[in-house]
Amino acid sequence: MQLTPGQKDANRVLAVGRAPVEHGFAHLKNWRTLTKPRTDPAHATRLLRALLVLTNLEVNR
């Protein structure tokens, strides 16, 4: 299926915004930050909120 130029532009914009987030989660997986089963849910929630803040700062920079 051929995409219109507008659809291609939209995909490009989404990819630019999504890339830093995907890279951040890839780093977390490599560091095994989110894979520890003994992680306290409250701690994990605070960690993910902090990561989202940092991600938003990076995307908006």
Rank of each mutant, 00 (worst) to 15 (best):
V13N: 02
A15S: 11
R38F: 07
A42M: 09
H27N: 10
G17M: 13
R32D: 12
K29G: 07
E22K: 15
W31Q: 15
L47D: 02
G17N: 14
L51A: 10
T4R: 00
P5R: 00
A42K: 15
L52H: 10
V59E: 05
A50R: 09
R49D: 13
V13A: 09
L14C: 04
H43L: 15
M1A: 10
L28I: 04
M1G: 11
E22C: 03
L48F: 10
W31M: 14
A19G: 08
G24T: 13
R61P: 03
Q2M: 05
R49Y: 07
R46Q: 13
A26W: 05
M1P: 01
R38T: 15
R61M: 05
P20S: 06
L47E: 01
H23W: 06
Q7E: 15
A19P: 00
R46P: 00
V59T: 10
L3C: 03
V21S: 01
R18G: 03
T55D: 06
D40C: 07
E22M: 10
H43Y: 14
V21G: 01
A10C: 03
H27T: 07
P41V: 06
R38L: 04
L47I: 14
A50I: 01
R49K: 13
W31N: 11
D40H: 09
K36A: 15
E22Y: 06
R46L: 12
H43D: 10
H27D: 11
N60L: 14
T39G: 02
P37V: 08
H43I: 14
R32I: 02
M1K: 05
V59S: 02
